[in-house]
Design a protein around this nucleic acid. Structure first.
Length: 215
DNA sequence: CAATAGATGTCCT
DNA sequence: GGACATCTATTGG
């Protein structure tokens, strides 16, 4: 694919974009897909041609039978996409003001997904700053609602197929090696806390400030 | 630094 | 009515 525009700040490491991840990558349990998403690159192409890109550094897995998951009590109009085919984007509105983004995993009808919690911006930082109303690169995508806002993702993007969309997709990037990945309990959940399904890149300054980095 | 208040849709009891 | 997969500004140590 075409080269991305030069980032405003140097990324933490080399940026290999690679190729789009196939449906089969997502068609596995969220707890398996989650850690393997770290180091992957989410790309957004805006109508004006601007390209936004960021490398995932923090995610959380959610599943059916998991009391912290939106899918726990079955389908609703809001979580419908979560029960659909893997590889689609599940966007939800929360706390009366914020949107958060998930990637649907597992098999069709299953109700599992991975919440995108934080990323390291690598292209389009000026537009992200515009969306966020701040400049500091570290604060652009370091939280699920921040990340979603930086990318300009909202209701219309709910249900987008990341495997086929020309404007929102996920590239293989450079997967984080197992030794660089830490796990902890999930942020902001009060049930299902025994599930340590938050996965993040240990040394990344772009991880959200949500919680202690329980290795 | 830490703690807290305030913004307020959607789903739940 | 209350909880919630959150963020920001403000206040106080």
């Amino acid at each position: 694919m075409a080269a991305l525009e030069a980032p405003t700040v140097p990324p933490q490491g080399p940026v290999r974009l690679g190729r789009r991840l196939p449906r089969s990558f997502f068609a596995r349990p969220s707890t398996a897909v989650g850690p393997e998403l770290l180091g992957r690159v989410l790309v957004r192409e805006l109508p004006d041609g601007t390209r936004l890109a960021a490398r995932l550094v923090e995610v959380e897995a959610y599943q059916e039978g998991d009391p912290a998951s939106h899918s726990f009590r079955g389908r609703t109009p809001r979580n419908e996409v979560m029960f659909g085919r893997p590889g689609h984007l599940y966007v939800y509105f929360t706390y009366g003001m914020h949107f958060c983004s998930n990637i649907v995993t597992g098999s069709n009808g299953e109700g599992s997904a991975v919440l995108l919690r934080a990323a390291e911006p690598i292209a389009g930082l000026e537009v992200m700053a515009d969306h966020r109303g701040l400049e500091t690169p570290r604060l652009l995508c370091s939280g699920p609602a921040r990340f979603t806002q930086a990318f300009g993702i909202g209701r219309p993007d709910n249900g987008t197929d990341l495997v086929r969309s020309q404007s929102l997709y996920l590239l293989s990037g450079e997967p984080a090696p197992a030794r660089a990945i830490a796990r902890s309990t999930r942020v902001g959940v009060t049930v299902g806390v025994e599930r340590r399904w938050r996965f993040f890149v240990r040394e990344s300054p772009f991880v959200s400030p949500g919680r202690p980095a329980t290795g």
